[in-house]
């Protein structure tokens, strides 16, 4: 039985600046998680389909372009429609302070701004991801 936390790292929107997404994907993998990196320009539909197919516990979205208030609500809505409410969504990137409470309200659990240590993200996911004990 594999109890590794499974994380889909995705880069939605038109932006191609993938340094952060790739660095965090490697950090999570080095911390013992199973990481699936979707690559660039994924629509919310692609991302949720990947989460479903990969049996993901966590979706990590990297967004720097300012499009987060369009992308995140759509991802949350699609997760709900697919019965994936227990998949934790975290966001990393440039998110203005005023938008943080709005993202929390729709169910985004963790928001990691520039300068966040990788270890803080690893710890957050380890502590808050759904338990895989009992799953097949």
């Amino acid at each position: 039985m594999n109890q590794k936390i499974r994380v889909v790292i995705a880069k939605p929107g038109l932006d191609g600046h993938d340094r952060g997404a790739k660095v965090i994907a490697r950090a999570l993998r080095d911390a013992g998680m199973e990481v699936i990196y979707t690559g660039l320009r994924q629509t919310p539909e692609h991302i949720v389909a990947a989460a479903l197919q990969e049996d993901a516990d966590v979706i990590g979205l990297s967004i720097l372009s300012g499009a987060h208030m369009h992308i995140c609500p759509r991802v949350m809505e699609l997760l709900h429609q697919n019965g994936l409410d227990d998949v934790m969504v975290v966001v990393g990137g440039i998110i203005p302070d005023v938008d943080i409470p709005k993202l929390n309200v729709i169910g985004v659990r963790g928001i990691f701004l520039p300068g966040t240590p990788m270890q803080e993200i690893v710890d957050f996911i380890t502590k808050n991801a759904r338990s895989r004990v009992g799953s097949v």
Binding site: G13, L14, D15, T43, S65, G66, A67, H68, M69, I71
Partner: peptide, 10 residues
């Protein structure tokens, strides 16, 4: 459709 939320942002 892919431009949604990105126009004039960056």
């Amino acid at each position: 459709a892919l431009s949604l939320g990105e126009v004039g942002k960056c």
